[in-house]
Design a protein around this nucleic acid. Structure first.
Lengths: 197, 197
DNA sequence: GGAATTAAATACCGTATCGTATTTTAATTA
DNA sequence: TAATTAAAATACGATACGGTATTTAATTCC
């Protein structure tokens, strides 16, 4: 049992709320006052339990990856479905996650990719790393496909992995630009058509 | 001849400088003081000749489109090269424009797509429109290709147009994430491989 | 040359921001 | 119950921001 006055709000919950706020409004448009109000934690409590704005943002990125990025990557990499189905599921999952109910629109990592490129280098690097780790999930699945004979030996898996990671970003950009769900699905089918079979 | 004291700085030049500043740092990270310093125009002069921050940003978007977007779209739409070559030139041009010397990194419109989605609705709409107009340039070229027999009659041009517009965004995202030029070129070749022939 | 016109330059205002010092409150231990 | 520990609440400080009022300087028309 801890000694003094107990916390009113679990820092884990506060971090999740902060993550949602950053996800929705971005780094610059989110103020510490916004986070304080959203979490119900006064600013000194925030600083004491979660750190300053940059630290909270980094933790929010990490939490997002734990809750959203990693599970989707895991699903993709370890899926026993045929390659094409696995890729369709991945891109389709990305598409639907952009407008999931009960959560902000879009992908937090993609939203942050450009805004954070002009800011703190450490944050920029972390965002880049998350994009690359998504690419690497595609790469892992493609390598397995090749080893299991689903792809020709001559296949350039890295090129394909960059292509599909890029495709998942493309879906985010086009969705943000107002392209309808049905058109996004057609886009996905176009990109899947590069696969043999 | 105008009456009173002559302008020290041509508002056209100032707008171009402001555009470069927004392009490099984004909307939120660019302050009016930054623009004032970059242009050499004191703040009252800026407001008098170019308007407030939102107005300058909108004008910067329009100028960027005039100087960068429209010419590239025009080149794509009216190119007499075979479809595949025209698309390769377009995507390759996008890729190289991301790191052109003497200009900020990346594409101003793409950089703004996510940051501005949480801000002023008018700005958000304009950014979306620019993304869609890029898509429409691909659409126009694909329709011509179909009418000229370069594509089968059954082709879904809109799906292909969204795909290639998305591809151009994908290049921007992957480049921002640190993917090398050679790998981006391989990505482009993958995307071009969906075309017949 | 002087009145009128327009822009530059400086200084300023209200507000919002990140971050913290200080006080008050709630719990545990002795 | 008194002392201790830790958090909540409030208030505050320094700075940066968007935007403007005011004064000064440069040019044209009469």
């Amino acid at each position: 049992m801890p000694r003094g006055r107990p916390r009113k709000i679990d820092p884990k919950d506060a971090l999740k709320t902060a993550m949602m706020t950053f996800w929705e409004k971005g780094y610059e448009r989110t103020s510490m006052a916004d986070i304080s109000e959203a979490t119900g934690m006064a600013k000194p409590g925030l600083y004491a339990s979660l750190g300053d704005k940059d630290e909270i943002f980094k933790k929010a990125l990490a939490l997002y990856n734990d809750e959203m990025g990693s599970p989707m990557a895991e699903e993709l990499v370890s899926s026993s479905a045929p390659l094409k189905e696995a890729l369709r599921a991945s891109l389709s999952g990305m598409m639907h996650s952009l407008q999931g109910s009960g959560q902000p629109m879009g992908c937090f990592v993609l939203n942050s990719t450009f805004e954070c490129s002009a800011g703190d280098p450490d944050i920029k690097e972390r965002v880049c790393d998350l994009n690359i780790s998504r690419r690497d999930a595609y790469l892992a699945r493609l390598k397995r496909a090749k080893s299991e004979g689903e792809l020709p030996e001559a296949t350039d898996e890295l090129a394909l992995a960059n292509f599909f990671a890029g495709q998942s970003a493309a879906i985010g950009v086009m969705a943000q630009s107002g392209v309808e769900l049905g058109d996004l699905e057609a886009m996905i089918e176009v990109s899947l058509s590069i696969l043999p079979g």
